[in-house]
Write a protein that binds this DNA or RNA. Structure first.
Lengths: 151, 151
DNA sequence: ATACGTGCAAATACTTTGCAGGCTT
DNA sequence: AAGCCTGCAAAGTATTTGCACGTAT
């Protein structure tokens, strides 16, 4: 079983475990979130969903995503002013990097983050619940296309 | 001259240098941003501004903040769903920590950030323009008040 | 059978825009 | 004097809510 299918099953199980009803619409949204690594927005999910459910509405997507967010089966990446993005493939908090040219968002895998969090905990005395590390810039692809964009 | 006044003057100079008009409203907004370390929202600025300019409107605040943001004299900290916050005291990108109980936002001073950025640059090949590190949790004050909130 | 979910529309919150008149330069 | 700035209102975008009907359990 590939990791995407695994996520799809995990998400279903979490819904059932918490007595949420598993409807066809929810299954479709789960599947979209489980299989898409490109951090879709609500509208992206809605557009895909509409192919199978032409009468669905954005409200349904918002509601289902809210449930999954609360169950920690999807990570919300807040981008004020251009719609939040969601990561259902890897729902634990992790760093992202956003290209301001092509608007793609990629995951970053970074060893230093744990150390950083320890340092911040010691320094602030906070009980830390969530760490958001988001970098933006221009990705190598876009740099190739337009060399004059380099900083 | 204290550092807040210095920021106030710097912001004025930047406006003048770029041929923006220095109006009483703008001066008042600059002063609010230069002197407040608590990362005010647009509405917070507007509320303070209204004491001296009862007929002003949020649009004016939005417009002035947009100018300052573009001139890099204020740092926008995006919090989707509850209004962005602004840092005019320290307008260079730096980490913040937000308390989910009292909603205060504090600066973090963290040595490891440069190293992290180098690592991310090497790993991704991005030309990095902006780094956002935002932590949320419960601050020591709120932990004292409600010990059961500890993670 | 019951309670929850769906989908429509209206409401909310935040921000941007258009425009007429006023003020800074 | 000229053009930008202000402040009002309206429009725009993202998201939430209310409600009647339908469906999963």
């Amino acid at each position: 079983m590939n990791p995407y299918e695994l996520r799809f099953i995990e998400m279903q199980n979490t819904l059932k475990k918490h007595q949420y009803k598993v409807t066809p619409q929810r299954l479709a949204i789960l599947k979209i979130l489980a299989y898409h690594t490109d951090h879709p927005k609500i509208d992206d999910i809605y557009d895909i969903l509409r192919k199978d459910f032409p009468t669905t509405s954005p409200a349904t997507v918002y509601k289902t995503v809210a449930v999954l967010k609360q169950l920690k089966e999807v990570l919300e990446i807040q981008y004020s002013g251009e719609g939040n993005r969601y990561d259902g493939v890897n729902p634990l908090s992790h760093p992202h990097i956003h290209c301001s040219q092509c608007n793609k968002v990629f995951d970053i895998h970074c060893h230093d983050v744990d150390h950083l969090i320890t340092q911040i905990t010691n320094q602030t005395g906070f009980t830390i619940h969530h760490v958001r590390i988001d970098v933006s810039g221009v990705c190598p692809e876009c740099n190739k296309k337009k060399p004059e964009n380099r900083a």
